[in-house]
Design a protein around this nucleic acid. Structure first.
Lengths: 244, 244
DNA sequence: TAGTGGTCTAGACCACTCG
DNA sequence: GAGTGGTCTAGACCACTAA
């Protein structure tokens, strides 16, 4: 690695962190694609000139951050966003009775627009900066239950308007088409009353209590890349939050 | 340790897991109290007859579960529930503007009661089993913002009714008085309309949208020991959920 | 059977805390 | 300076997967 000596006066960084950062950089630069097998511990340790144990510690912390999936006997894979066990990483709405399913969706509209105050704040832009905005309805057990507005900085998603349609699993296509991997998100939840428009699409009275989820999603470099505001009927479902 | 041979046919469990389980048991049995220093890695490895590295792995996984706090140069401490940085482990409601504060509370009533269906299900009891039930109001920035109902199995909290008053920080007293340490919790969130009673205490219209948080809290052995249902005004606050 | 990640050990040195 | 946790190494063996 670069810093062989530990006592570099100021700014001591453990070797395994340097290894980790170098590997994350290669992930970000697309050297290894989601789902792909990366080199084994032994190969990496030879390549980087550190011990296998140090590589292992770097890989293990990356697994803890859901960047990698490791399988004994097989190897280490780049995690695929919203795939397999990770599919529900960002989808926490569970039916009261029944399976945790991934909801189908129907796009209502897709437009280019100017960022409003909330969008600008969440995405680190200025008001009136150009964005893409998508509105869609999602079904839980065949009942329209969620109306969501998705906002994307135009600059990060060139050609978004030329997509044939908006696929159900957006994070997958962010990764495939624009090389943007969603690594984390924060959600702010409130209870609100349904607007007239919400009420029409969700088949409820206006003013009916809805769970409002404002999710800001971040790429691997911690840049905010998507704001998604969902209003959800929670008569037959709940948002699950696990604390430690 | 007990299982020296790895290949015990069925039921292979790594050494460090056995070490961890033995240490957790000692925590549960009260050998070390919250805030107390536990033996060093070297001492434990000698005592248990395993290498320092194995003890370290056990301690590190326990730290990852917030059971321990480790400090270079000082030692390893038993984590204190709702202390220091952990105080907000279970309190996720944040004012829109302003500090993340721990809300004051005022007890409305404290009664002995029979478990209803929701309480029985959450606490793994039968309906009509005896419970303690506390209702209180909590303040966010001097505004009554949360009305919460706390349900406890009577058997786990003998003499709960003889407490002089119900302290603001309940988890602390569960630990001090009954040796019950809350280690994890799950929360189910919904949007509901305020009941007449809710509305009176929260100074809003009945039917007004409230965020309903149903928290089931678990002790270190994963027994459900508390159900806490909160109804929150979210005009000026939000529930924060961090996803990976 | 070869190769991978998972566990376990022993020993060295480093960074931090405290008396 | 003594003791603690943190990092790093080297090497052994185990459990799992796939050819």
């Amino acid at each position: 690695m670069t810093d062989t000596a530990q006592t570099e006066a100021f700014g001591f960084r453990p070797l395994y962190r340097q290894v980790k950062e170098s590997l994350v950089r290669r992930l970000i630069e697309g050297e290894w694609q989601p789902g792909q097998l990366i080199p084994s511990e032994m190969e990496l340790s030879r390549e980087l000139g550190v011990s296998q144990g140090t590589v292992r510690k770097a890989l293990d912390t990356m697994r803890a951050e859901n960047l990698l999936i490791r399988r004994q006997g097989r190897g280490t894979y780049v995690a695929e966003p919203e795939h397999g066990d990770l599919r529900f990483q960002f989808f926490r709405l569970v039916p009261d009775d029944g399976e945790h399913v991934f909801p189908a969706s129907r796009t209502l509209r897709r437009v280019q627009a100017e960022a409003d105050q909330e969008e600008a704040k969440a995405l680190g832009m200025r008001q009136k900066d150009p964005i893409w905005r998508v509105e869609r309805i999602r079904m839980l057990e065949n009942v329209p239950s969620i109306i969501e507005t998705i906002s994307l900085p135009e600059g990060r998603f060139p050609g978004f308007d030329s997509l044939d349609d908006v696929p159900n699993n957006l994070y997958r296509i962010y990764s495939q088409r624009w090389g943007i991997t969603i690594g984390s998100a924060t959600e702010q939840l409130k209870a609100v009353g349904a607007s007239v428009r919400d009420a029409k699409h969700l088949d409820c009275r206006s003013g009916h209590p809805l769970l409002r989820i404002a999710r800001t999603a971040f790429d691997l470099e911690r840049n905010a890349v998507e704001l998604r505001v969902s209003r959800c009927l929670t008569e037959d479902a709940y948002y699950l939050s696990e604390l430690r």
